[in-house]
């Protein structure tokens, strides 16, 4: 269990809701849910969530910390914003789901094998390296994220797509060696480092 996780458990022993409010992006909205369920019914991936968004809100209120943070439900969010525009209370549900996912990741509780979790991390790493996404590398990283042999299989399965993209000049093998990038990559990295530092100091403040 990560150190941060232990700290958080200590700090918010009685109220997971308060922990979420303090630490999760847009978490202060969770209490405003009026239990209508329109978010859960609106989600295009709805059938694949073990706990649809409203249930997650209710679980947070009921203090089911582990169940929520280790859930792969939030990782099912396609960011389609259907729930947001339909929510009668204006909860930024998409962002809360992202926030919960991020928080779970930060605490080390996010399901390790969840493909979206993995992909999302790789995506971030990919984009922050040069400031711009390298689609080829991202794709390859993705295919191989479950190990080498699995990666070969996936690559083969995806080869037609790759080929199509390559033929139409929407994918270039050259990207593997160079690719697009920001000129001021170092400046970008400094910005991101600072942003992370500010965010972590806030979390420290909450948990201290």
């Amino acid at each position: 269990m990560s150190n941060l996780n232990t700290q958080m458990i200590e700090k918010y022993r009685n109220s997971f809701l308060r922990e979420v409010e303090a630490n999760v992006e847009e978490g202060e909205w969770v209490k405003m849910c009026m239990q209508c369920g329109v978010c859960s019914g609106s989600c295009p991936f709805g059938p694949h969530w073990e706990h649809p968004p409203q249930e997650i809100f209710m679980m947070i209120r009921a203090g089911k910390r582990d169940d929520v943070l280790t859930s792969d439900s939030m990782w099912m969010c396609t960011s389609c914003y259907n729930c947001i525009v339909r929510c009668p209370r204006g909860l930024p549900i998409t962002h809360i789901m992202h926030g919960l996912a991020h928080y779970a990741h930060r605490l080390g509780l996010a399901p390790k094998e969840n493909p979206t979790h993995k992909f999302a991390i790789k995506f971030w790493d990919n984009l922050t390296r040069t400031g711009r996404v390298n689609e080829l590398k991202l794709g390859l990283a993705l295919y191989f994220m479950n190990g080498f042999s699995e990666g070969i299989k996936t690559s083969l399965k995806m080869k037609d797509i790759g080929l199509g993209m390559w033929k139409t000049k929407r994918l270039s093998p050259m990207e593997i060696v160079g690719g697009h990038k920001c000129k001021d990559v170092s400046g970008l990295h400094k910005i991101l480092a600072k942003a992370r530092e500010i965010e972590e100091s806030k979390a420290q403040k909450f948990s201290g």
Partner: peptide
């Protein structure tokens, strides 16, 4: 000039709120 990736809507796992906003 020299724009960077927005992190789309999938960058949330690695990037916290502020780093994403910063992008």
């Amino acid at each position: 000039p020299d724009w960077n990736c927005c992190s789309a809507s999938i960058g949330y796992a690695g990037g916290g709120e502020l780093p994403r906003l910063a992008l």
